[in-house]
Design a protein around this nucleic acid. Structure first.
Length: 287
DNA sequence: AATAAAGCCAACCGCATTCGC
DNA sequence: TGCGAATGCGGTTGGCTTTAT
């Protein structure tokens, strides 16, 4: 657990602030005000769980569901690790999905082992829109007390509620060319709106992401994590799951990865989904 | 139509870890 | 080396929506 340095990312400045940086920050605050009355923690969460342009919104596909189940068997409640293997999904989303759907299903199956796949509760399939919605304020006390329009970031069904078209954030008064550092934020809105086209039914974009993650995906740090926890605690996941050998490296090396990515059967036309990679998570298949 | 119950999910909270001074 | 601040993470909660009665 713990954090990596917040400024460890390439290209980010660390250490003492320079006069120029101070000037830029001051100019920005002067131009746009102090803005949000939010703590950094809250802002971070909002960014990570919702605003990030690469967030994939929409139903958890069957492939992703299987992946979550397998990873959870492997890692337990290490949501961030699990989320790291599901491009575009957040730890919070996966955690929620597990708590509301998969966990209950697992529990139900455990209590009645003979039953096969149980539908997720009443199967109120979430029907996510691809963009945040601004709903008419409800008649709740909170809503009537304030005239602030609340952006309903929740995935909600279109009901009788009136949906007001989302107004873009007031970014037009920011000249992107003058604020390169804020570029991600300035382009964010557009990217979120484009997420609809990013959605795919069968996880092909996940595959693309896997490609882009490349070896990082194949040699991901599960073993390191498990090894670390093995050192830290006697009650560790390995002990709980004797099928795992924390010291045993994953059966992927550079050559294999190269082989895999150059394999002609994996060309653009190959119809693939995460099922084809399921064996990667099958402990029995591990050497 | 009204109300209760269940489901869902964004955000909050507290703890552990790491950084920078 | 110690300490305060920042950050990452998992657990939990609050409030809204949907479904059932």
């Amino acid at each position: 657990m713990g954090r990596s340095p917040c400024c460890s990312k390439e290209g980010l400045n660390r250490g003492a602030w320079t006069a120029l940086e101070d000037k830029i920050l001051t100019a920005y605050i002067k131009a746009h005000g102090e803005g949000l009355k939010r703590c950094g923690k809250s802002c971070r969460l909002r960014w990570l769980n919702y605003l990030r342009p690469d967030i994939k919104r929409g139903n958890i596909s069957h492939d992703e569901e299987e992946l979550i189940i397998r990873l959870h068997n492997l890692l337990g409640n290490r949501w961030s690790l699990i989320a790291g293997r599901l491009p575009g999904r957040t730890d919070n989303e996966i955690k929620n999905y597990w708590n509301t759907t998969l966990g209950k299903r697992a529990k139900a199956q455990a209590s009645s082992p003979t039953s096969t796949e149980t539908p997720p509760s009443k199967s109120r399939h979430k029907k996510l829109t691809t963009e945040p919605q601004v709903t008419k304020p409800s008649n709740s006390p909170q809503a009537t007390e304030t005239k602030i329009q609340v952006i309903r970031t929740k995935a909600t069904r279109c009901s009788s509620k009136v949906l007001i078209p989302l107004q873009p954030p007031p970014i037009q008064d920011i000249d992107p060319s003058e604020h390169q550092d804020f570029q991600p934020y300035l382009t964010n809105h557009e990217e979120i709106n484009n997420n609809a086209s990013v959605q795919s039914h069968h996880g092909t974009e996940s595959l693309d992401a896997l490609y882009s993650h490349g070896q990082d995906f194949l040699n991901f740090e599960i073993n390191d994590q498990l090894r670390a926890s093995n050192e830290d605690s006697e009650e560790n996941d390995i002990n709980k799951n004797p099928s795992l050998d924390p010291v045993q490296p994953l059966a992927f090396d550079e050559a294999m990865f190269k082989d895999w990515t150059t394999n002609p059967c994996l060309d653009d036309n190959a119809a693939m989904d995460l099922d084809s990679l399921a064996f990667l998570l099958e402990p029995d298949e591990w050497p």
